[in-house]
Nucleic acid binder design. Structure first.
Length: 453
RNA sequence: GGGGAUGUGGGGUAACCUGGUUAGCCUGCGGGCUUUGGGAGCCCGAGAUCCCGGUUCAAAUCCGGGCAUCCCCA
């Protein structure tokens, strides 16, 4: 089913808000988003992160401090130039990302090696003035995300955080949301503005374009130097901290989850974020007492009892199927008389089981059933590449270089195929064979190529 | 930045070419009655021609401008 239809059908968002690139997220979508936030926040906290709040406005002066960073964002920030009747002496920007809001405070807070590491996360909203065409949840001018900002004593501690960030992605995105993805190190020409290295989690949408859903950056000392984030080490030497930051695109992850798992009927939400994991559908005649008992017994799940009158059970089943509810619990006279319930999963299983029997296995079965697998194919030459891209897949190909020397080959891919070099896989070890798919020079890397959002 | 297309109730559409019924249909939404084991039926109701101007007895329809959205190209 088409993405926009799914959003409409599932009552996820309302795109009629009268400002381009801004949308309203309705309760059913917001409940899923809150569950999504909790999944990530829990993992981040287990990893030692603490929550923090920072203002949405950043003074212009701060944003300008890191030159490369400023250049990267200058064209897409919203400026606040007036307040009330006054022209502001110093303009603000609405944060497009929070490095330049947070690090001046880190400079005040971090004094000693004993203060490190600092690992904070911020769950919130950022604003970017997107000039490309916007799409609900996928590319908006306002979006919800989580960003972590970590400071360490040295490079090796910082770099080991990157693998922990990526493990968190695996645990949530793959294990809980059942989305498949690749983790790549971005080519040098595609780094986050101001970063030393950028790593990303890319998934593929059914329309054949990849979507970046999370990124983690190694910032080195770049920001520490301009924001003066220093500490005294145990030999009484002043040093700059080494920093990482990790951005988790909540809107985009929701979009990918909805779009990838949907079928012709409608949504199929993973049980980990479904607003209602199971809907109880009472069928007349059944006593309220029995329905209440069922609700009580299964209260460890997020439940909804559909007591609407004047609607046939079949219509209720269809209604909740469209909205992606994993399991329906049917209770009627037959169940009440035998102390049973009837389980009907979104994937088609229907079974009557004794009241009280655990439902976990049904959720597991359902979740496994919706699991996504990426379409990745090997491209030996440019003809292969074209076929793969046209078929809506991701191509794996030998490539000369992901540093500056490879940029010319990248231009060819970009111009001729409108595709991007997503980068070099870091979650699997790969050795290149043969020659660069574009230049024919010796291939030093295996890269992934796809059209992107 | 250049080109093209399209704007009709909440969503999807018909009527537009060739101006003329009460702007039709499906769905969704609200209410009533009858219903309840996989999309029930009947009845009632709310809800639309993007904006400004022009032509005309008469404009959703033709013309001009604006705005918005989408697609393609840089």
């Amino acid at each position: 089913m088409k993405f926009d239809d799914l959003l409409e059908l599932g009552d996820i968002v309302d795109i009629r808000y009268p400002a381009k690139g801004f949308i309203v997220i309705k309760p059913y979508g917001m409940l899923a988003i809150k569950n999504l936030y909790r999944l990530f926040e829990r993992e981040l906290e287990i990893d030692g992160h603490e929550p923090v709040h920072f203002p949405a406005v950043i003074p212009e002066r701060n944003l300008r401090l890191e030159e490369e960073h400023f250049k990267g964002f200058e064209g897409e920030v919203f400026w606040i130039t007036r307040a009330g009747l006054n022209e502001l002496e110093e303009r603000y920007v609405l944060r497009p990302t929070s490095e330049t809001a947070i690090y001046p405070m880190y400079a005040l807070w971090i004094k000693s090696y004993r203060d490190l590491p600092v690992k904070y996360y911020l769950s919130g909203t950022v604003w970017r003035y997107e000039t490309k065409s916007t799409r609900p949840l996928i590319r908006g001018r306002e979006f919800l995300w989580i960003e972590t900002h970590d400071a360490f004593r040295n490079e090796s501690e910082a770099r080991s955080q990157i693998s922990r960030d990526l493990e968190i992605s695996k645990r949530v995105i793959r294990d809980r949301l059942k989305l498949d993805f690749i983790m790549v190190k971005r080519p040098s020409w595609d780094r986050f503005a101001g970063a030393v290295d950028t790593y990303a989690v890319d998934t593929l949408l059914p329309d054949g374009k990849v979507l970046q859903i999370a990124t983690t950056h190694y910032l080195g000392e770049n920001f520490a130097r301009v924001f003066n984030v220093k500490y005294m080490d145990d030999t009484e030497t002043e040093r700059y901290v080494h920093q990482t930051c990790f951005g988790i695109g909540i809107n985009r992850i929701l979009a990918a989850t909805i779009y990838n798992h949907a079928d012709e009927t409608g949504l199929r939400l993973p049980s980990s974020i479904a607003p209602y994991q199971a809907v109880i559908v009472p069928i007349h005649p059944v006593s309220d007492m029995y329905v209440d008992r069922v609700t009580e017994i299964y209260s460890k799940y997020r439940l909804k009892v559909d007591r609407r009158e004047g609607i046939t059970p079949g219509n209720k089943f269809y209604y909740w199927d469209k909205r992606g509810v994993p399991i329906k619990i049917i209770v009627g006279k037959r169940e009440e008389e035998n102390s049973t319930i009837t389980i009907s999963t979104r994937s088609g299983i229907k079974e009557t089981i004794p009241l009280g029997e655990d439902l976990d296995k049904y959720f597991e079965y359902y979740d496994d059933n919706i699991k996504q697998t990426l379409k990745i194919y090997d491209a030996k030459d440019l003809e292969d590449l074209k076929k793969i891209l046209d078929a809506g897949g991701i191509a794996r190909a030998p490539f000369c270089s992901v540093e500056k020397e490879g940029e010319e080959c990248y231009r060819v891919i970009k111009e001729r195929f409108k595709a991007e070099i997503r980068g070099v896989r870091i979650d699997v070890d790969e050795k290149p064979e043969g020659k660069c798919i574009v230049s024919g020079r010796k291939a030093e890397y295996v890269v992934y190529i796809a059209k992107q959002y």
